[in-house]
Design a binder for these strands. Structure first.
Length: 422
DNA sequence: TCTGGGGTCCTAGGACCC
DNA sequence: TCTGGGGTCCTAGGACCC
């Protein structure tokens, strides 16, 4: 074997972030809610133990929450994003090659570390991250990303592994695969798991042993890669520089139902600004935009409405005033009075690198002027926060804003939210 | 009353072209 | 009147991930 990966995964990440600066949460059940305080999206070990399920709407488990005095928080992405960066910074001490896979997971290339004491190394990673950031993590090591994922998963369940597990020799890999359900393998979702079951493929070991033709036929080439990785054959490299996104989307539910088009316009304008900021950050321009608005998915028949409109631009753009103009025009075309709207948003599509701008003969926009304006706004927002400058179209009352009733302070990113020691 | 948000990749099938 | 075969591009839908 020549390749070696570690997967470092933060335990109950959002709940752990809340705990770092609030020790009274230690040892008690903690949950973090989705945007708008809707569903449970993160749970501490204690919250899992009392049977609070992932993804459940809060109101359905209100009783359990009160019974066990569960501490409930709105999501605080400003805090989680900053804590995530600190964890990644720490991990970069242990490998020159780190892939940030998600807000709470990173892959490390351990190259050809087979000669070193891998178990001790994994344990050191785990302890250092806890010491430097306060975040508990689990470390799984394996010859492919899929096996590193598996090692990580088992390390959390096994008392003996205690958050650090190395799967490199054939015997341990086989034992691990035999006691893992196929559906728990990275890349096998519930649909594929069900399909595999009908072919008597139940465990990860069964999956490892299917033929290439079977994998390709039933799970496509993506599934075939997974099967090969279970056999120890690496098919996925580390991606240190994330490839530019092909679509960028921004959407939110409203804090309360909205009926007036003017208020949806305000929310949409705000989403356009967010989305365009992401677009410029990756140095792209959009060639098209899809705008959508909808009622609740759970609305009764007749009160259900959802529609979208796609606009194609003559010249790809990243200019907010221009994008807002297109977005509002599209919204007015799909808005129907008489519905209780819950959500609006947009997708920016057909993205091209900013450097490859092709001018259109029909262009009526002063692109240089817009570019300077955007540069100035980006600078101001960088220095003074995202809400420092805005457009009249975004409104001032913002009644559509997210419900965030249980937000914790931004301990690490706002001076006003710093902890005080008496 | 209250039900998240943001992505990627693959495949099949239709339209169109020579 | 005969009505093939190969290729590309696009889109919708399905699968997956966190």
């Amino acid at each position: 074997m020549t390749s070696l990966f570690a997967l470092v995964d933060c335990n109950n990440f959002y709940a752990s972030c809340e705990r770092v600066f609030n020790p009274s949460l230690e040892g008690v059940p903690v949950v973090v809610l989705s945007n708008n305080d809707g569903c449970i999206i993160a749970r501490s070990a204690e919250a899992k133990a009392i049977g609070l399920p992932m993804g459940k709407p809060l109101f359905e488990v209100q009783k359990l929450i009160e019974q066990h005095h569960v501490q409930v928080f709105s999501s605080n992405y400003e805090l989680y994003g900053d804590m995530s960066a600190r964890v990644v910074e720490t991990l970069s001490q242990f490998s020159p090659h780190v892939e940030v896979y998600s807000i709470d997971e990173s892959f490390l290339d351990l190259g050809d570390f087979y000669k070193t004491d891998l178990v001790a190394y994994a344990r050191t990673i785990k302890e250092t991250v806890k010491l430097w950031t306060g975040i508990p993590v689990a470390v799984g090591v394996g010859p492919t990303k899929t096996l590193a994922k598996l090692a990580n998963r088992i390390s959390k369940k096994s008392k003996r592994a205690d958050g650090a597990l190395v799967l490199t020799d054939e015997y341990h890999i086989r034992e691990a695969l035999k006691r893992t359900e196929a559906g728990d393998v990275w890349g096998i979702g519930h649909r594929y798991a069900k399909k595999l079951q009908s072919y008597r493929v139940h465990t990860a070991w069964d999956l490892r042993n299917v033929t290439d033709a079977f994998a390709k036929k039933h799970l496509t080439v993506v599934g075939l890669r997974t099967v090969k990785e279970l056999r120890g054959e690496p098919c996925q490299d580390l991606e240190m520089v994330p490839p530019p996104k092909k679509n960028i989307c921004t959407s939110r539910s409203f804090g309360a139902a909205i009926t007036q088009v003017e208020e949806i316009e305000e929310a949409l304008s705000t989403h356009v600004v967010r989305c365009a900021t992401k677009l410029r950050k990756q140095k792209s321009r959009a060639g098209a935009m899809t705008v959508f608005c909808m009622t609740s998915r759970f609305a009764a028949e007749g009160e259900l409405y959802s529609n979208c409109r796609t606009v194609y631009f003559d010249t790809p753009t990243d200019s907010e005033p221009e994008l807002i103009r297109y977005a509002l025009k599209a919204l007015r075309e799909i808005y129907r009075p008489g519905f209780r709207y819950r959500k609006t948003g947009l997708l920016l599509l057909d993205l091209v690198p900013s450097s490859s701008l092709q001018l259109s003969l029909l262009d009526t926009v002063d692109r240089e002027k817009h570019a300077m304006l955007m540069q100035t706004l980006d600078g101001l927002r960088e220095r003074f926060g995202h809400s420092a400058v805005g457009y009249a179209a975004q409104g001032t009352e913002q009644r559509w804003k997210l419900r965030q009733e249980r937000l914790s302070p931004c301990y690490t990113t706002r001076l006003s939210d710093l902890l005080r020691v008496r």
